[in-house]
Design a binder for these strands. Structure first.
Lengths: 217, 217
DNA sequence: GTCTATATAATGATAGAC
DNA sequence: GTCTATCATTATATAGAC
């Protein structure tokens, strides 16, 4: 149907099959994990035969890693430019945490795919691939925390890595436990990431202890 | 060999087989999850035949749930008495968080088993079973936070549920991401839970912001 | 590139001897 | 209660026609 197009979006139908397989696989792997997803299920969901799946990807492992790599790529892209704004370190940290959570909630599938590996609940050699995303976010956040320290905005007796883990941990746990959080008393904010972002930032910056004059905002 | 003993520890060898199967299954399910663990593997690890496994447990699901229930039971027991000490709310919260993390690190297998379900990376109907443990811990922690608020020790503009999730989130994320944390710059404390507990508590209570006279300790 | 048909191994689960 | 042997089903992966 389509003539020879050499653009990247080309091979119209050529790569269409592969793409449909990748999309179907992403959904299924995210939902049920590596072991819980069969190549037959992927084929059926993509509307192709099992043999077609194995034509595009030599093994199930290769398909999984292709899907995972794709999810990781989009994971790092989105947060890249946020670090580079005119805001001070504190505001950038706050914004980073908020966008990080929002990004996960906006693309649950990919986030779950990556986090499955990060938490050690994954399979295959996926952990190494997923580590890169975490590494990227972590280093970026630690950098901002260090900046805040040298600027005198943050406590200098603080371990930036531990602080980064605390902040990201809030986000990850909120995202991963939303389903059970809904059944918990007071967990009504399970569907309101922005609310939790505010609460988390408030605790992270000023602590829960009373008797201190909280500042801005 | 052993005569008729009616005590609970009895049936010497009778329940020995079942116990060996449960222990082997716990290890394997914790390592590889439900789908990643075959009944043959469980049988082999327990040193019995596959048929013996199915003699004690009607289905693989039943075996998994038995293992999970067992892990959940020990999960709730340990933290039960901590809430009831003469310490004030802040000290109890600090101690609760610290013991919670230590407990997970001391029995990684069971913690991973439960958390797999809590994070939605599990299988079968395990989530409902595991939710109880989280519910228990969560309610207990929220209660202590509320106490701290009425005692005037904690900010009263705080959402106790969000605060509880923040604190537990730090612990859960530390525990679940230790393997990748080790490869992260500054993540040397991946094998020092006590260190992270201190850092987390410090942030949780007093925040990371500078310019405030930090109090006790 | 896509299909039908198939090979081969492993899965969860059962039958029946001891 | 434990075993060997076996069932039906599903798994990943391949062969070869179109």
């Amino acid at each position: 149907m389509s003539p020879n197009v050499t653009s990247s979006a080309a091979s119209s139908d050529a790569e269409a099959g592969q793409q449909r397989i990748l999309e179907a696989a992403e959904r299924l792997f995210a939902e049920s994990g590596y072991d819980g997803t069969s190549t037959s299920a992927v084929a059926a969901a993509a509307g192709v035969s099992k043999a077609t799946v194995f034509h595009h990807f030599p093994t199930k492992d290769a398909l999984y890693l292709a899907v995972l790599r794709n999810s990781c790529r989009s994971g790092t892209e989105l947060l890249a430019e946020i670090s580079g704004s005119g805001l001070d370190a504190l505001a950038r940290i706050r914004r980073f945490a908020s966008e990080h959570l929002q990004e996960m909630c906006n693309d649950e599938q990919r986030a779950r795919l990556v986090l499955r590996e990060v938490t050690g609940f994954g399979a295959a050699g996926g952990q190494a691939v997923a580590e890169q995303v975490v590494h990227d976010h972590f280093v970026r956040l630690v950098g901002m925390l260090r900046e805040g320290q040298t600027a005198g905005l943050l406590r200098d007796d603080l371990d930036p890595a531990a602080a980064a883990l605390t902040l990201m941990g809030g986000n990850l746990t909120y995202f991963l436990t939303r389903d059970v959080l809904r059944h918990l008393p007071g967990g009504n904010f399970a569907d309101d990431p922005a609310y939790f972002s505010e609460a988390l930032a408030s605790i992270f910056f000023d602590g829960v202890r009373a008797g201190r004059n909280r500042s801005n905002e």
